[in-house]
Design a protein around this nucleic acid. Structure first.
Length: 596
DNA sequence: AGGCAGTACTG
DNA sequence: CAGTAC
DNA sequence: GCCT
């Protein structure tokens, strides 16, 4: 007998999305039957629904007290023909549960509604269709969460009036990063030296640059497009633009026509060539100037750690325009994904570049602590620092112990180091919880939840990872900043500032920084160093080489047919791939593809 | 037309 | 599995 | 988006 045999479900507002799709399959695999709702425009959902059908509500619409929230938004996501479905559910008082509770049944191998809490949808309105426009009539207001409904409506108008504070963060700056590197002394003289680089996943070099050459007129609009596609989640297209930009930068001659560019420069195809010609003719691209309202919104949200393109798009499509707005309408977004709260709190600090000269101080602190714990352990800076960039987006630390391949030892060590440094107020936050971390840091998380009033009557237990192979942290030096980074950042909107923990007293503290602890087995030191040194573009290029040779390369080693070829010796890996070994400083730039 | 780097964690 | 991050 |  299957778990859900004979039981009928309906998912609201829809079953789109990955997790829901996953749960859907899970339910069906276990014998449950799902009524198609939005997928089915014929309204057959209504025809087959009955009073024993169980309603699975998307978690976004359920608060911590198991009350339905944001019914008006639920409604917005339901297509018109499903309004009657919803009304049927309410009129017949169908049992509603939070869809994520499905996993509870699965875990317990038992389908028993007593295991979960039913969601209360009482006290909400009934909807009518008027000329295709949906209206909401509040029938009664009692019960625990009705006040929040009203608040929502108020806050909505309030937030709509809110202006977009920042527009387009056009950071004109220049990038020259490779070749020379060691200069810790900023080359202030020439404009600036911001390098956006790799904190952004697939932007290999900064896209906000202004090249010295006369080709920057072309590059800037293309970079804008790259960012646009990136926040929209079209990573491959965004990457194409970035690769094209890199290639243009390498091209020393002036570009005089789109045709010429396509013919002479790799990574430029018909589409970009056409755009280049357009830029040459008119100085800009159509649709770049105006259509940026959506871009601003997507960028605003996805600049926050933990918010990606999909979440940003969802929030944007719900007409939310600040985190506070999201909070008031969908508090669960933050309760479930609490790390976002810290992304929000350090929104501005975490965008600020770390001057190269300061990085060593951060390393020293960790090193000292590590020595006390286990003098045999090693830690080294990887990432953009290792590649010699004058400014780093974050600090990547690789821990290992000569001769030690024991993952448990390695995991426990970084966990312990991070905890000790938390007690010393160097580590300000964790973005992941284990049992031990929760002991020292749990209250801090609860404080943040309380700050947004999500803890009121809820103890809240967190998911704890059994162990961590990497620690994602926020850290802060207790000393004044020595050098102010000059990269532009997206500012937090006034509405959202109440959550900010970003540094306001630069005479006392440095900014809060993102620091990552990684571990590697001693036997995998070489491949790990390659991996964590990056850049990500360089890794991709290298791994492509491996593919071409019928091999596979990861941070754990170079493989052929699942057999390990090499993982310890860095140079050996280059050799096996038939790539000339280059120092990290030269891995900022992709060894370009061949000319066409 | 299909690939585009590969791994880890979470809901 | 999809989303996010590394 | 571009490349093969």
């Amino acid at each position: 007998m299957l778990l859900f045999q004979g039981q009928q479900f309906v998912i609201l507002p829809n079953s789109e999305g990955s997790y829901l799709g996953y749960l859907t399959r899970l339910i069906e695999k276990n014998g449950g039957h799902l009524i198609s709702s939005v997928e089915d425009e014929t309204g057959s959902g209504l025809a087959t629904i009955d009073s024993s059908t169980i309603v699975l509500l998307n978690s976004s619409f359920v608060d911590e007290n198991f009350n339905l929230i944001q019914e008006n938004f639920l409604l917005r996501e339901l297509r018109p023909f499903n309004i009657s479905l919803w009304n049927f559910i309410k009129e017949n008082n169908l049992k509603c549960i939070d869809i994520k509770d499905i996993s509870i049944f699965i875990k317990n191998k038992k389908f028993d509604l007593n295991l979960v809490q039913l969601v209360n949808i009482e006290g909400h309105s009934v909807f009518k269709l008027n000329d295709g426009v949906t209206t909401v009539q509040t029938i009664k207001s009692e019960g625990t969460n009705n006040s929040s409904d009203e608040k929502i409506l108020e806050s909505k108008s309030e937030s709509e009036s809110e202006s977009e504070s920042e527009s387009e963060s056009e950071s004109e700056s220049e990038s020259e990063s490779e070749s020379e590197s060691e200069s810790e002394s900023e080359s202030e003289s020439e404009s600036e030296s911001e390098s956006e680089s790799e904190s952004e996943t697939d932007i290999e070099i900064d896209v906000n640059r202004k090249t010295k050459g006369n080709n920057d007129r072309i590059v800037n609009p293309l970079a804008k497009l790259a960012r646009k596609y990136k926040v929209e989640g079209d990573t491959f297209r965004a990457r194409s633009y970035n690769l094209a930009i890199l290639s243009i930068d390498k091209y020393t001659l002036p570009i005089t026509s789109g045709i010429q560019a396509q013919k002479e420069i790799p990574n430029i195809g018909p589409s970009i060539a056409k755009k280049i010609q357009r830029i040459l003719d008119t100085g800009t691209l159509p649709g770049l100037e105006q259509a940026s309202e959506q871009f601003d919104s997507l960028q605003y949200f996805s600049t926050c750690h933990g918010v990606g393109s999909e979440t940003a798009k969802r929030w944007n499509s719900l007409k939310l325009d600040s985190f506070k707005d999201v909070l008031e309408k969908f508090p669960n977004e933050f309760a479930v994904e609490w790390p976002i709260l810290f992304g929000w709190s350090y929104y501005e600090d975490w965008q600020k570049k770390i001057p190269r000269s300061v990085c060593a101080k951060y390393l020293q602190i960790v090193e000292d602590e590590l020595f006390l714990l286990d003098p045999d352990f090693k830690v080294e800076l990887q990432g953009s620092f290792n590649r010699g960039l004058p400014e780093c987006g974050d600090l990547d630390l690789l821990f290992y112990k000569p001769g030690c391949d024991d993952l448990n030892v390695l995991c426990r060590t970084i966990e312990e180091i991070a905890i000790r440094l938390y007690k010393k107020s160097f580590v300000k936050c964790f973005l992941q919880l284990t049992e031990q971390i929760e002991k020292v840091f749990g209250n801090q998380v609860r404080e943040r939840l309380a700050k947004i009033r999500l803890t009121e009557n809820k103890p809240k237990k967190f998911n704890l990872a059994p162990r961590i192979k990497k620690a994602l942290l926020g850290v802060q030096l207790q000393e004044p900043i020595s050098i102010e980074p000059h990269n532009e950042i997206v500012e937090l909107k006034d509405n959202d500032k109440f959550m900010s923990l970003s540094n306001e007293d630069t005479s006392k503290y440095d900014y809060c920084r993102r620091m990552d602890f990684f571990i590697c087995k001693w036997s995998e030191l070489g491949s790990s160093r390659i991996h964590f040194t990056g850049s990500s573009e360089y890794n991709r290029w290298m791994r492509l080489k491996a593919i071409e040779k019928g091999m596979k390369m990861t941070q754990h080693g170079l493989f052929k047919d699942d057999r390990l070829l090499e993982s310890f010796n860095e140079k050996k890996i280059f050799e096996l791939l038939d790539i000339e070994y280059v120092e990290p400083q030269l891995r900022n730039q992709v060894n370009k593809r061949q000319k066409k």
